[in-house]
Protein backbone atom coordinates (compact mmCIF):
# COMPACT_ATOMS: atom_id res chain seq x y z
CA UNK A 1 0.00 0.00 0.00
CA UNK A 2 1.38 3.38 -0.92
CA UNK A 3 1.92 6.11 1.63
CA UNK A 4 -0.35 9.08 1.89
CA UNK A 5 2.05 11.52 0.29
CA UNK A 6 2.59 9.24 -2.64
CA UNK A 7 -1.15 8.93 -3.05
CA UNK A 8 -1.50 12.70 -3.08
CA UNK A 9 1.28 13.03 -5.59
CA UNK A 10 -0.46 10.51 -7.82
CA UNK A 11 -3.75 12.28 -7.45
CA UNK A 12 -2.18 15.59 -8.38
CA UNK A 13 -0.47 14.21 -11.41
CA UNK A 14 -3.68 12.47 -12.43
CA UNK A 15 -5.47 15.82 -12.31
CA UNK A 16 -2.75 17.45 -14.30
CA UNK A 17 -2.80 14.61 -16.76
CA UNK A 18 -6.52 15.03 -17.14
CA UNK A 19 -6.10 18.70 -17.93
CA UNK A 20 -3.61 17.92 -20.62
CA UNK A 21 -5.66 15.22 -22.29
CA UNK A 22 -7.32 16.02 -25.59
CA UNK A 23 -10.82 15.94 -24.19
CA UNK A 24 -9.71 17.35 -20.85
CA UNK A 25 -12.45 17.39 -18.23
CA UNK A 26 -14.90 15.85 -20.68
CA UNK A 27 -13.38 12.43 -20.32
CA UNK A 28 -11.86 10.58 -17.39
CA UNK A 29 -11.28 7.25 -19.17
CA UNK A 30 -13.79 5.54 -16.99
CA UNK A 31 -16.66 4.76 -19.36
CA UNK A 32 -16.46 1.24 -17.99
CA UNK A 33 -18.05 2.43 -14.74
CA UNK A 34 -21.05 3.62 -16.71
CA UNK A 35 -21.22 0.31 -18.56
CA UNK A 36 -21.01 -1.60 -15.27
CA UNK A 37 -23.86 0.46 -13.86
CA UNK A 38 -25.93 -0.19 -16.98
CA UNK A 39 -25.39 -3.94 -16.76
CA UNK A 40 -26.32 -3.90 -13.09
CA UNK A 41 -29.51 -1.98 -13.87
CA UNK A 42 -30.31 -4.40 -16.70
CA UNK A 43 -29.95 -7.28 -14.29
CA UNK A 44 -32.54 -5.86 -11.92
CA UNK A 45 -35.00 -4.84 -14.64
CA UNK A 46 -37.61 -7.22 -15.98
CA UNK A 47 -35.76 -9.59 -18.28
CA UNK A 48 -38.90 -10.04 -20.33
CA UNK A 49 -38.78 -6.36 -21.30
CA UNK A 50 -35.20 -6.79 -22.40
CA UNK A 51 -35.96 -9.89 -24.42
CA UNK A 52 -39.10 -8.41 -25.94
CA UNK A 53 -37.08 -6.06 -28.15
CA UNK A 54 -35.74 -9.08 -29.98
CA UNK A 55 -39.21 -10.32 -30.87
CA UNK A 56 -40.44 -7.34 -32.81
CA UNK A 57 -38.45 -7.94 -36.03
CA UNK A 58 -39.10 -11.67 -35.69
CA UNK A 59 -42.85 -11.07 -35.58
CA UNK A 60 -42.65 -8.87 -38.66
CA UNK A 61 -40.61 -11.52 -40.44
CA UNK A 62 -43.03 -14.30 -39.58
CA UNK A 63 -46.09 -12.23 -40.45
CA UNK A 64 -44.88 -10.75 -43.71
CA UNK A 65 -42.70 -13.70 -44.73
CA UNK A 66 -45.17 -16.49 -43.97
CA UNK A 67 -48.44 -14.66 -44.47
CA UNK A 68 -47.63 -12.39 -47.37
CA UNK A 69 -44.68 -14.32 -48.82
CA UNK A 70 -46.70 -16.92 -50.79
CA UNK A 71 -48.86 -14.17 -52.28
CA UNK A 72 -45.89 -12.06 -53.36
CA UNK A 73 -43.77 -14.96 -54.62
CA UNK A 74 -40.12 -14.40 -55.51
CA UNK A 75 -38.41 -11.04 -55.66
CA UNK A 76 -35.20 -9.90 -57.38
CA UNK A 77 -32.31 -9.77 -54.87
CA UNK A 78 -29.22 -7.50 -54.90
CA UNK A 79 -27.39 -9.44 -57.59
CA UNK A 80 -30.52 -9.78 -59.68
CA UNK A 81 -31.17 -13.40 -58.72
CA UNK A 82 -34.63 -14.42 -57.53
CA UNK A 83 -35.02 -14.92 -53.77
CA UNK A 84 -38.04 -15.63 -51.60
CA UNK A 85 -39.91 -12.68 -50.14
CA UNK A 86 -38.96 -13.73 -46.60
CA UNK A 87 -35.28 -13.82 -47.54
CA UNK A 88 -35.73 -10.42 -49.16
CA UNK A 89 -37.20 -8.64 -46.13
CA UNK A 90 -35.29 -10.44 -43.34
CA UNK A 91 -32.03 -8.42 -43.58
CA UNK A 92 -34.04 -5.24 -44.04
CA UNK A 93 -35.98 -5.92 -40.84
CA UNK A 94 -32.73 -6.51 -38.99
CA UNK A 95 -31.37 -3.19 -40.22
CA UNK A 96 -34.56 -1.47 -39.09
CA UNK A 97 -34.33 -3.18 -35.73
CA UNK A 98 -30.70 -2.06 -35.33
CA UNK A 99 -31.75 1.48 -36.14
CA UNK A 100 -34.76 1.51 -33.81
CA UNK A 101 -32.86 -0.04 -30.91
CA UNK A 102 -29.92 2.34 -31.25
CA UNK A 103 -32.16 5.36 -31.64
CA UNK A 104 -34.29 4.37 -28.67
CA UNK A 105 -31.27 3.81 -26.45
CA UNK A 106 -29.55 7.02 -27.46
CA UNK A 107 -32.60 9.28 -27.52
CA UNK A 108 -35.57 8.34 -25.31
CA UNK A 109 -33.46 6.47 -22.82
CA UNK A 110 -30.88 9.27 -22.58
CA UNK A 111 -33.55 11.95 -22.54
CA UNK A 112 -35.35 10.27 -19.67
CA UNK A 113 -32.20 9.72 -17.64
CA UNK A 114 -31.05 13.26 -18.28
CA UNK A 115 -34.26 15.14 -17.56
CA UNK A 116 -36.32 12.92 -15.27
CA UNK A 117 -34.30 10.33 -13.46
CA UNK A 118 -31.49 12.89 -13.06
CA UNK A 119 -29.11 9.97 -13.35
CA UNK A 120 -26.43 11.86 -15.24
CA UNK A 121 -26.38 14.72 -12.77
CA UNK A 122 -25.47 12.19 -10.10
CA UNK A 123 -22.77 10.65 -12.29
CA UNK A 124 -21.26 14.00 -13.15
CA UNK A 125 -20.84 14.88 -9.47
CA UNK A 126 -18.24 12.12 -9.41
CA UNK A 127 -15.00 12.18 -11.34
CA UNK A 128 -16.79 10.93 -14.45
CA UNK A 129 -16.91 13.31 -17.38
CA UNK A 130 -19.79 13.67 -19.86
CA UNK A 131 -17.88 11.79 -22.53
CA UNK A 132 -17.50 8.79 -20.21
CA UNK A 133 -21.26 8.80 -19.86
CA UNK A 134 -21.82 9.12 -23.60
CA UNK A 135 -19.38 6.36 -24.49
CA UNK A 136 -20.76 4.12 -21.78
CA UNK A 137 -24.33 4.56 -22.97
CA UNK A 138 -23.43 4.01 -26.62
CA UNK A 139 -21.49 0.90 -25.72
CA UNK A 140 -24.48 -0.47 -23.83
CA UNK A 141 -26.74 0.24 -26.78
CA UNK A 142 -24.36 -1.61 -29.09
CA UNK A 143 -24.13 -4.54 -26.72
CA UNK A 144 -27.87 -4.88 -26.79
CA UNK A 145 -27.88 -4.50 -30.56
CA UNK A 146 -25.29 -7.28 -30.80
CA UNK A 147 -27.47 -9.64 -28.77
CA UNK A 148 -30.58 -8.92 -30.84
CA UNK A 149 -28.68 -9.26 -34.12
CA UNK A 150 -27.25 -12.62 -33.08
CA UNK A 151 -30.69 -13.85 -32.08
CA UNK A 152 -32.29 -12.64 -35.29
CA UNK A 153 -29.61 -14.23 -37.46
CA UNK A 154 -30.26 -17.52 -35.65
CA UNK A 155 -33.97 -17.17 -36.41
CA UNK A 156 -33.13 -16.56 -40.07
CA UNK A 157 -31.06 -19.72 -40.08
CA UNK A 158 -33.88 -21.72 -38.52
CA UNK A 159 -36.32 -20.41 -41.12
CA UNK A 160 -33.92 -21.55 -43.83
CA UNK A 161 -33.13 -18.05 -44.99
CA UNK A 162 -29.37 -18.38 -44.58
CA UNK A 163 -27.68 -19.87 -47.60
CA UNK A 164 -24.08 -18.67 -47.31
CA UNK A 165 -21.39 -18.50 -44.61
CA UNK A 166 -21.04 -14.79 -45.38
CA UNK A 167 -24.28 -14.35 -43.48
CA UNK A 168 -22.35 -14.45 -40.21
CA UNK A 169 -21.08 -10.96 -41.11
CA UNK A 170 -24.63 -9.70 -40.72
CA UNK A 171 -23.97 -9.49 -36.98
CA UNK A 172 -21.00 -7.07 -36.97
CA UNK A 173 -22.58 -5.13 -39.82
CA UNK A 174 -25.75 -4.50 -37.86
CA UNK A 175 -23.63 -3.33 -34.91
CA UNK A 176 -22.00 -0.89 -37.32
CA UNK A 177 -25.44 0.37 -38.34
CA UNK A 178 -26.47 0.70 -34.70
CA UNK A 179 -23.29 2.63 -33.94
CA UNK A 180 -24.00 5.12 -36.68
CA UNK A 181 -27.50 5.83 -35.41
CA UNK A 182 -26.57 5.82 -31.72
CA UNK A 183 -23.74 8.33 -32.07
CA UNK A 184 -26.00 10.71 -33.98
CA UNK A 185 -29.03 10.11 -31.80
CA UNK A 186 -27.28 11.20 -28.65
CA UNK A 187 -26.08 14.43 -30.21
CA UNK A 188 -29.60 15.19 -31.41
CA UNK A 189 -31.11 14.38 -28.01
CA UNK A 190 -28.93 17.04 -26.43
CA UNK A 191 -30.98 19.65 -28.32
CA UNK A 192 -34.29 18.30 -27.03
CA UNK A 193 -36.11 19.93 -24.16
CA UNK A 194 -39.60 18.41 -24.04
CA UNK A 195 -41.37 15.15 -24.77
CA UNK A 196 -43.17 16.79 -27.66
CA UNK A 197 -39.88 17.49 -29.35
CA UNK A 198 -38.89 13.89 -28.77
CA UNK A 199 -42.04 12.84 -30.63
CA UNK A 200 -40.64 14.42 -33.76
CA UNK A 201 -37.97 11.73 -33.91
CA UNK A 202 -40.72 9.27 -34.83
CA UNK A 203 -41.86 11.51 -37.65
CA UNK A 204 -38.49 10.97 -39.21
CA UNK A 205 -38.00 7.31 -38.37
CA UNK A 206 -41.33 5.89 -39.49
CA UNK A 207 -41.18 7.02 -43.14
CA UNK A 208 -37.56 5.96 -43.29
CA UNK A 209 -38.56 2.51 -42.05
CA UNK A 210 -41.37 2.16 -44.57
CA UNK A 211 -39.78 3.68 -47.64
CA UNK A 212 -36.14 2.52 -47.53
CA UNK A 213 -36.63 -0.46 -49.83
CA UNK A 214 -37.59 -2.48 -46.77
CA UNK A 215 -40.62 -4.29 -48.18
CA UNK A 216 -40.21 -3.77 -51.92
CA UNK A 217 -37.46 -2.71 -54.33
CA UNK A 218 -36.52 0.90 -54.84
CA UNK A 219 -37.42 0.64 -58.52
CA UNK A 220 -41.12 1.31 -57.85
CA UNK A 221 -40.27 4.95 -57.17
CA UNK A 222 -39.65 7.72 -59.68
CA UNK A 223 -35.96 8.57 -60.09
CA UNK A 224 -35.86 11.66 -57.82
CA UNK A 225 -37.45 9.82 -54.89
CA UNK A 226 -34.91 7.04 -55.36
CA UNK A 227 -32.13 9.60 -55.01
CA UNK A 228 -33.72 11.03 -51.87
CA UNK A 229 -33.97 7.62 -50.25
CA UNK A 230 -30.43 6.70 -51.27
CA UNK A 231 -29.25 9.78 -49.38
CA UNK A 232 -30.83 8.53 -46.14
CA UNK A 233 -28.90 6.22 -43.81
CA UNK A 234 -31.36 3.36 -43.45
CA UNK A 235 -31.32 2.45 -47.14
CA UNK A 236 -27.55 1.91 -46.95
CA UNK A 237 -28.04 -0.34 -43.93
CA UNK A 238 -30.77 -2.35 -45.64
CA UNK A 239 -28.73 -2.80 -48.79
CA UNK A 240 -25.57 -3.68 -46.87
CA UNK A 241 -27.25 -6.44 -44.88
CA UNK A 242 -29.16 -7.68 -47.91
CA UNK A 243 -25.93 -8.05 -49.88
CA UNK A 244 -24.19 -9.83 -47.03
CA UNK A 245 -27.10 -12.18 -46.45
CA UNK A 246 -26.73 -13.72 -49.90
CA UNK A 247 -22.99 -13.11 -50.22
CA UNK A 248 -23.37 -10.87 -53.25
CA UNK A 249 -20.87 -8.02 -52.99
CA UNK A 250 -20.17 -5.10 -55.28
CA UNK A 251 -18.53 -1.69 -55.23
CA UNK A 252 -21.70 -0.44 -53.56
CA UNK A 253 -20.85 -2.56 -50.50
CA UNK A 254 -17.86 -0.35 -49.79
CA UNK A 255 -20.01 2.76 -50.23
CA UNK A 256 -22.53 1.48 -47.70
CA UNK A 257 -19.83 0.73 -45.13
CA UNK A 258 -18.14 4.06 -45.76
CA UNK A 259 -21.46 5.86 -45.30
CA UNK A 260 -21.72 4.45 -41.80
CA UNK A 261 -18.09 5.14 -40.92
CA UNK A 262 -18.57 8.79 -41.86
CA UNK A 263 -21.83 8.88 -39.92
CA UNK A 264 -20.12 7.53 -36.81
CA UNK A 265 -17.31 10.09 -36.98
CA UNK A 266 -19.68 13.00 -37.57
CA UNK A 267 -22.06 11.77 -34.88
CA UNK A 268 -19.32 11.54 -32.29
CA UNK A 269 -18.06 14.97 -33.23
CA UNK A 270 -21.55 16.38 -32.87
CA UNK A 271 -22.13 14.66 -29.53
CA UNK A 272 -18.79 15.75 -28.07
CA UNK A 273 -19.33 19.30 -29.26
CA UNK A 274 -22.73 19.38 -27.64
CA UNK A 275 -21.43 17.91 -24.39
CA UNK A 276 -18.69 20.51 -24.33
CA UNK A 277 -21.28 23.21 -24.82
CA UNK A 278 -23.72 21.86 -22.23
CA UNK A 279 -21.33 20.90 -19.47
CA UNK A 280 -18.26 23.08 -19.86
CA UNK A 281 -19.74 26.52 -20.19
Amino acid sequence: MSTLSEGQAQARSATEAARERTFGPLYSRNALAVVARGLMAAKSSTWLVLVSGFFEPVLYLVSMGVGLGPIVGNVAGPGGQQISYAAYIAPALLAVSAMNGAIYDSTWNVFFKMNFAKLYQGMLYTSLGPLDVAIGEIFLALLRGLLYATGFTAVMAVMGLVTTVWAILIIPASVLIAFGFASFGMGITSFMKTFQQMDWINFFLLPMFLFSATFYPLSVYPQYIQWLIQALPLWHGVELLRQISIGSFSAATAVHVAYYLVMIVLGIMLTTGRLRKLFLK
Binding site: V72, V75, L210, F211, F215, Y216, V220, Y221
Partner: peptide, 11 residues
Amino acid sequence: FAMGIGLASLV
Protein backbone atom coordinates in the same frame (compact mmCIF):
# COMPACT_ATOMS: atom_id res chain seq x y z
CA PHE B 1 -48.38 4.78 -49.25
CA ALA B 2 -45.70 2.19 -48.54
CA MET B 3 -47.89 -0.89 -48.63
CA GLY B 4 -50.91 0.16 -50.62
CA ILE B 5 -48.85 1.70 -53.40
CA GLY B 6 -45.25 0.52 -53.04
CA LEU B 7 -45.78 -3.08 -51.98
CA ALA B 8 -48.90 -3.26 -54.12
CA SER B 9 -46.64 -3.14 -57.16
CA LEU B 10 -45.39 -6.61 -56.16
CA VAL B 11 -48.70 -7.94 -54.90
